[in-house]
Write a protein that binds this DNA or RNA. Sequence first.
DNA 1: TTGAAAGCGATACCAA
DNA 2: TTGGTATCGCTTTCAA
Lengths: 338, 338
Amino acid sequence: MAKIHEVAEAAGVSISTVSYALSGKRTISAETRRRIEQAVRELDYRPNAGARMLAGRRTNIFALTEPFRADTYAPAHMAFVLATSIAARRYDYDVLLLTEEQASAGMRRVARSGLADAVLVLDVAPDDERVELARHLDIPSVFVGVPNDHDGLVCVDLDFEAAAGLAVDRLADAGHRTIGLLGHPAAAYHRSNFPPRVRAGFERRARERGLADTVELPEFGGARRVAVRAALGVLLDRGVTGIVLHCDEEAHVAALDELAARGLRVPDDVSVVSVGSTFDTSSMQPPLDVLPLVPQASCDLAVDLAMQLLSDAVPPPGVRLVAPVYHDHGSVAPPGRR
Amino acid sequence: MAKIHEVAEAAGVSISTVSYALSGKRTISAETRRRIEQAVRELDYRPNAGARMLAGRRTNIFALTEPFRADTYAPAHMAFVLATSIAARRYDYDVLLLTEEQASAGMRRVARSGLADAVLVLDVAPDDERVELARHLDIPSVFVGVPNDHDGLVCVDLDFEAAAGLAVDRLADAGHRTIGLLGHPAAAYHRSNFPPRVRAGFERRARERGLADTVELPEFGGARRVAVRAALGVLLDRGVTGIVLHCDEEAHVAALDELAARGLRVPDDVSVVSVGSTFDTSSMQPPLDVLPLVPQASCDLAVDLAMQLLSDAVPPPGVRLVAPVYHDHGSVAPPGRR
DNA sequence: TTGAAAGCGATACCAA
DNA sequence: TTGGTATCGCTTTCAA
């Protein structure tokens, strides 16, 4: 592996000139820069990561903490990991994956050994052990998700509350007076930070719009579809004509199946809006209106903030909410014959 | 962050003694070791990663290349990423995630910058661009999966062919004479390295046992269940009484639903065995016999091999196949009334 | 616009 | 069993 010394020699300059040419922290004459770039190319030179970490201030690595649990919903989490990785590469950063059970141990280890410049915290629980740790870490961190106690933290997330509110608005505007929320299993409301926010947004806006609302949280488990069917039954028994879905893909499919099985058409008989989904609802049967959760949006912003935290223009702590966008696929209509 | 110098001072020894005490590469007197360990604990010392990379030979980092594609089946892939991470931690190694589209670029970058000691290659395609690159990389690599051309490579994987063979054996032993394979969508047989191996194992053993066999590869897409239903129809029309499943969880569920919808009971009317699944088939309705793909088994072995490649006892290249294990959950019985 | 040289914080060789 | 120190390959300050 070529070293900076060889590049300098090949270009006929000193190693410091090579270093500055590569980092851009000094103005280099066009001719010199050209020769250096050529030497770099010919030698396929890449600065040694260890040397760079040691001499410079940067590791060019983000630690990504995402404690995988048995009940982790893989597709969504993987989407976030991928989005983070892509976002990081925009700044020539790599991502070190921390998946340990005890997330704190990994964060502490990485921070104290100077392996990463910052920590990106995913899969945030309402009451997350990493919150307290983040406050005392010697490197900055950005949370993708909003824990209950986020004092002094930098957080990024979709504005789930607003998303749920917009979904309710859409139904209310279409004339629905009785609506329902089909949510995640109850346990998710303690484990994840966003289901409660969707629920709160749903209930608040329903109240504001004077709608009758019902929330059902079908359980996971062997007979998932049975639970979804029962939940839908409850909603329909209460006269619900508009449904907000905030659950995983499987529950979406099960709900649509159940509506079809009952002979209810969307949107003629029942209107449906999906909130905070990471999967594609536009190719479902029927396509569903959705206010999606876009991992890349949150992760791009999170990485941008991390970079700022590493600069001299440190942004203030606080929660940055990404505005939800409504995608119309024709699953909402005025209440029908039911 | 404490440095080795401070530890040495606190323990009243030289920095080299501290270094040796921590690496265990030298015998240290019990008393000295005790004092050093105490100093380390009190200062919460962790060696600086960059300095270690530069001075030592090791980065203590594995690069994990897994090019996420749109059609990637997230749960399985995430399971492998997690298993790799866990396996790596056993040796105090961290995992750097390479997800870039052009996997080769990431591998080359990491290798040339000395960011990782070895590369673990996941999600291996039959004809994988990373194969050729791995041969010319300056750091060793281990493939989790077996590409067609694996000459000179170190590969680890479940013995899918044997697994399919054992599934066929089980059905044949129970008396089935006409069996079917419900596989992944056709495209998967070009994209992934293992579906063809399952198919080959299935067909070969069926031939050896003198069974009539049919292979159906239902497509993905909007109406997944429809495709699975049609495929099952074909198999049943051909008089199949024993079915081998090698497909994702959704297809499993769809297949079982379809059997139930047709009034066929498992195993009374139809016997079913799942091959190479990473999800839990024992809690399905009904529970299914399975020869599972256990990510931790492959990944532990892969990491063990990577560590050996970094040692002076370099193992020879070649394919290491993990023996499949049959889990009986009562979904196979002698052919019934059909 | 460029160069020389002092670190960065470990590892491991050479001595003692 | 322990210590002194050259060395790893870069970044960055100080000079020119």
